[in-house]
């Protein structure tokens, strides 16, 4: 329980750090001419195609920490070792999720025993083997999952999300 509390505090600090770094970046961007940012509005946000890992980096049931669609959006890749709906890769068993709880933004912790992501803030639980289905919890969304593509080299790319990420009103900032 002590550990649990520390994890919450740790999560908060991580968030603040992330925010501070992002704020510095934004301050720099603000000095650029505004026109540089102008572009035609699209119906959906444009997701980057980001290489997150190679399948060789992934060990069954050991989450790999990643970030998508940018460094302020932490997540994980998990090789489940069995094919699941929505799974990528040769075995159809690789999934990726945000690790920011869509309820109040606390960092989720992976429980390898039952392959769930768990929130120490308000106890929400998401099933990594069922598309991030909220097993129990206060979030009004199931867990945002990555759209993954694995190329011939085994590189794993994230190319989209299926729900809104916590803490941003556009998945791509």
């Amino acid at each position: 329980m002590e550990r649990c509390k520390r994890m919450v505090d740790l999560g908060r600090r991580r968030f603040l750090q992330g925010g501070a770094i992002a704020a510095a970046g934004a301050a720099a961007a603000a000095t650029l001419p505004r026109e540089a940012k102008a572009q035609a509005a699209m119906a959906r946000v444009e997701y980057p195609s980001n290489r997150l890992a190679n399948v060789a980096d992934l060990k069954v049931n050991e989450p790999l920490e990643v970030a998508y669609p940018d460094k302020d959006a932490p997540g994980v890749l998990i090789k489940l070792g069995r094919q699941v709906e929505g799974g990528a890769g040769p075995e159809g068993d690789i999934v990726g999720f945000t690790t920011v709880c869509p309820h109040k933004g606390f960092p989720l912790a992976y429980n390898p025993d039952d392959r769930t992501l768990n929130c120490p803030g308000h106890y929400s639980r998401f099933d990594c083997e069922a598309g991030g289905l909220e097993i129990w919890g206060q979030a009004t969304q199931n867990l945002p999952q990555y759209t993954l593509r694995v190329d011939d080299n085994g590189d794993v790319f994230a190319e989209g999300l299926d729900e809104l990420l916590y803490g941003r009103l556009s998945n791509v900032l």
Binding site: F15, L16, T140, Q141, Y166, G167, R168, L173
Partner: peptide, 19 residues
């Protein structure tokens, strides 16, 4: 607030699609 930035946990400056 500057909404082009990721907002921290427990922020008041976010709402989910259900809201």
């Amino acid at each position: 607030v500057d909404l082009s930035l990721q907002q921290p946990a427990q922020t008041a400056a976010w709402y989910s699609p259900s809201m």
